[in-house]
Design a protein around this nucleic acid. Structure first.
Lengths: 120, 120
DNA sequence: TGCGCTTTCAACTTTATGGTTGACAGGTGA
DNA sequence: TCACCTGTCAACCATAAAGTTGAAAGCGCA
């Protein structure tokens, strides 16, 4: 069961610790030790989080001299964004159409006097 | 431990079934039964997924006549989008600066002839 | 070579998640 | 009224996820 990219990215970012790591990596690359600093968990746990982020493509660990750097990748963000935008746009468009429909019904209501509840 | 909105939304969308539901709800409101149609799982399982989406604020279930409708909400998408954009922007800006830095170094390299590896 | 730091793997515990089945409340319409 | 269909809740099971500890590879340097 090889989870697709979207599933991996969303679940990678579903963890507050990992989102925090992303936030810090947006400021600049960091070593694992630097990243682990603020947390009270073990270094190994931080490695696990990093591996999740890496397998999701959120982060890369380019080979290099011993204290290896962790780097934020931005391509997957584009993919996530595309997904979100697609459905948001479609839904918002539906709402616009619905609004005009409701407006039309309101016009009729003014002539017929029909009561109709609607939420928030 | 009341997980924050972002955590709930990301983990709600981390499931392929739930993302599929969102995709279908973007086309129009639906009842639980209609939503459950394409899946081979039990109605109760679908209902659980719906509850997760609802608690994340992705979906609402306005009260109404018996076959209750499930409706896509778009506000949480904005919040997610804001989070993504913030860090993407910051990271991309860093990369731009890095690019100009590397360009500067390349200029020097042409004069000094220094070998330097870089990944992908 | 050998010491020390970084990195990774493995086993284990606890808790969350996705699924099941069974039972039950609550309108709707014949 | 009564039966039916929709929607909900609860108990339970299996697996995955987040954390722990312990131990073992790899590199870098004196």
């Amino acid at each position: 069961m090889p989870a697709d990219t979207l599933t991996r990215v969303f679940s990678a970012l579903a963890d507050p610790t990992r989102r925090d790591m992303v936030a810090r990596l947006a400021e600049g690359d960091a070593t694992v030790n630097q990243l682990a600093q603020p947390y009270r968990m073990s270094l190994q746990a931080v490695y696990k989080h990093l591996k999740v982020l890496e397998e999701a493509g959120v982060v890369s660990r380019p080979p290099g001299p011993q204290p290896r750097l962790v780097r934020l990748e931005t391509e997957v963000f584009d993919e996530m964004d595309a997904w979100i935008e697609r459905y948001r746009r479609r839904a918002e468009e539906r709402f616009r159409r619905l609004d005009t429909l409701l407006a039309t019904m309101d016009d009729k209501k003014k002539k017929k006097g029909n009561g109709h509840e609607q939420d928030r």
